[in-house]
Design a protein around this nucleic acid. Sequence first.
RNA 1: GGCGGGGUAGCCAAGUGGUAAGGUCGGGGUCUGCAAAACCUCUAUUCGCGGGUUCGAUUCCCGCCCCCGCCUCCA
Length: 465
Amino acid sequence: MALRFFNTYSRTIEEFQPLDPAGRAVKMYTCGPTVYSHAHIGNFRAYIFEDLLQRHLEARGYTVERVMNLTDVDDKTIRGSRAANLALGEFTAPFKEAFFEDVETLQIERADAFPAATEERFVAAMIAMIEKLIARELAYQAEDKSVYYRINRFPKYGHLAHFDLAELRSTGRVKSDEYDKEHVGDFALWKAWDEEDGDVWWESPWGRGRPGWHIECSAMATALLGEQIDIHCGGVDNIFPHHEAEIAQSEGCSGKTFVLYWMHCAHLLVDGQKMSKSLGNFHTLRDVLEKGYSGREVRYALIRVHYRAPLNFTWEGMDEARQALGRIDEWLRRLGESAAAATEAPEIEDDKFSEALDDDLNISAALGHLFEQIRESNRELDRGIEPARARAWLNWWERINRVLAFAAVEEETPAEIQQLAEERTQARLAKNWQKSDELRDAIQAQGWAVRDTKEGQVVTRRAGA
RNA sequence: GGCGGGGUAGCCAAGUGGUAAGGUCGGGGUCUGCAAAACCUCUAUUCGCGGGUUCGAUUCCCGCCCCCGCCUCCA
């Protein structure tokens, strides 16, 4: 079955066909974080969805070139840097660093490029684009010195969000600068400097100022991937106005279709509600890790629901993730043990996992199949499996895990734990059950677990420890 | 008001015009000194509600209800 994705632009599921005539290279642009604070788990739901998409495309033989931008200049970063009494770059640098650490923790593949909005070459690219839009009368400088996009001159404006311009109504989030605009819906391409901006400004043909948010993505996507890209992702809240604006800007300059497939993931809810600091349900990745959960557990919890369905984050869900991963770990441990003596490995012909993902990333069906296979192979293990067969199952898993990235990080059992385990073995040989149980408790207290099997003790890292 | 997404077991969730995957929790069992793990087994006569089409609908059509989101810088 061919790859099929839901395209927000057409609101239908479409067969995936990249621009590349050879049908192999895929250009992907993903909206990244605004680095004014630590990214929260809702942000990471989107990045993990994008990661799943990239990894599955790669599993299907595509070569993905992905760009993720970092917004390091906007109202929030400027406000934050002023509050912290730091230069803008000094203020955003630690958040950029933290973001990359979090990406690593969650096993999200690094994009090929992480352009930042303040890089001179991109500011120059943004200015060049705005000049072009003005030349084409798609933009104008208003009384307030800012430059705005003239949405009435771009007939497709509103198509992505399915908004009728006449229906747009103010929600009170607009600044009072709308008096200067020709249409309330006109959005800023270049924002004229004002006192609130402090020393954050660039010279431009329209005077000192800074780029609008939307132009950043159009310019960086074009600079790094070209005028046309295959897939552009983000959260549903980016559909309007951000992605709508990107289309207007990019196509206003190039005259070509900017993006073939628009893909958006639904929101993450926490305890059934939108995350907000006032409700106390706002979590960064760091908050969740502090509660004792691992990055892979968070990854599992955030990836397991289809990207277009709202995902409700709960601690119960985190525990469910822990259990499910523990089962996978134990399955792999048993397979590894049985496969040790294998000299060859026949292939297990089973592509159902990937076939499920072909269907608009149906992760639930894919995981359902994985667990069915785990049960099947566990039965084989119980019956006594051939080493080659165990090796074949491991190879099958490795293919799948290149997409899921669920495997635990290998960790050496520390010497003191090994020592305790050895003492316990002796106690057990002496049938000293009391001492055996005490040693088990001691091992568990140090974050490890010990189980007795027919082949003797098995020591593993305890989940959450 | 306009535009989306979603309503399937205690919780999470897939799915099909032909009678409900999977995960997790809980009960029972095999195994075990105990435990753990694994396996076996049980847990939705039913898919938000009401109509309609059909031999047959959770799935298609119509109407309604509820939840979440977007409607100018939130992933």
